[in-house]
Computed example of a mutant assay.
Amino acid sequence: MKYILLMYHTEGVFTEEELPGQMDLALDVCHQLQAKGEFLGASPLLPVSSATSLSCKSGRLEVTDGPFAETKEQLGGYVLIDVPNLDDAIEVARKFPAAQRGTVEIRPLFELQGIPQVGK
């Protein structure tokens, strides 16, 4: 089953000194998943200050700077995995630094037919 792991934490939760090591830990988990054929993709996100949000209500386009929600914890990145079940997804999620200082939201993907595949 395919899952997305959404990494939430307060911006700046890792110091500048800690961040390279934490990124290395996350990369190591991704490489371990790749070796088992369970890695589908991942990416950290730039700071929330770089976000742009849009909505189109009643035919009127609204574009605003910043994130959709005003919260302390921000979406910092994602990892896409393909593992047999939720228990395995939980075991993967707990290995990421965001699980130690934030929250990892685990969501199964809805497999919609007709979505273009990367590289195809």
Rank of each mutant, 00 (worst) to 15 (best):
R107G: 02
M7S: 07
G37T: 00
R60P: 05
I81S: 00
G114P: 05
G119D: 04
F14C: 02
L61K: 04
G119Q: 06
Q22G: 04
R60C: 10
L19G: 07
F14A: 06
F110T: 13
G66N: 06
Q100I: 05
E73T: 08
L25R: 15
E73K: 12
Y8E: 00
G12W: 09
L80R: 02
I90M: 11
F14T: 02
I90E: 08
T64E: 04
I115D: 14
Y8M: 01
A99I: 07
T103K: 14
Y78E: 01
V13C: 11
Y78C: 02
T10E: 15
H9F: 14
V92M: 05
D82Y: 03
K36V: 06
V48K: 14
A26E: 05
V29E: 00
A69H: 07
Y3Q: 01
D88W: 08
K57P: 07
A51L: 03
A69V: 13
K36P: 11
D87K: 14
K72N: 10
Q32I: 02
T103F: 05
P67I: 00
V83D: 14
E73F: 00
Q34L: 13
D28C: 04
C30I: 05
V63F: 06
A35G: 07
Q74S: 12
L5T: 03
S43F: 05
K36N: 11
P67C: 08
D28K: 09
V79E: 07
A26C: 14
T71W: 12
V48D: 10
E73Q: 15
D65N: 13
D82S: 11
I81Q: 06
L45R: 00
G21C: 08
A42T: 09
L27Q: 13
I90Q: 10
L40R: 15
E111M: 12
V92Y: 04
R60Y: 12
G102T: 03
D88G: 06
S53F: 01
E91L: 10
S58H: 13
L112M: 15
P67D: 10
G77P: 06
V13F: 10
T103Q: 15
K57S: 12
D82R: 05
Y3T: 03
F39A: 07
R60H: 15
P67T: 08
L27A: 08
L61T: 09
I4M: 12
S53N: 05
L33C: 11
A99T: 09
K57R: 12
A89Q: 03
M7A: 14
G102R: 04
G37R: 01
A26D: 10
T103E: 15
L61F: 04
P20A: 01
L54N: 11
P116V: 04
D65F: 03
L46S: 11
F110V: 13
A99V: 10
G12Q: 03
M7G: 03
P20D: 08
R60K: 12
Y3L: 00
I106M: 07
M1F: 09
E70S: 08
D24K: 10
M7T: 04
K72P: 14
A89F: 01
I90Y: 00
P97Y: 01
K95V: 02
F39P: 02
G102W: 00
S55N: 08
Q117W: 09
K95F: 01
L19H: 12
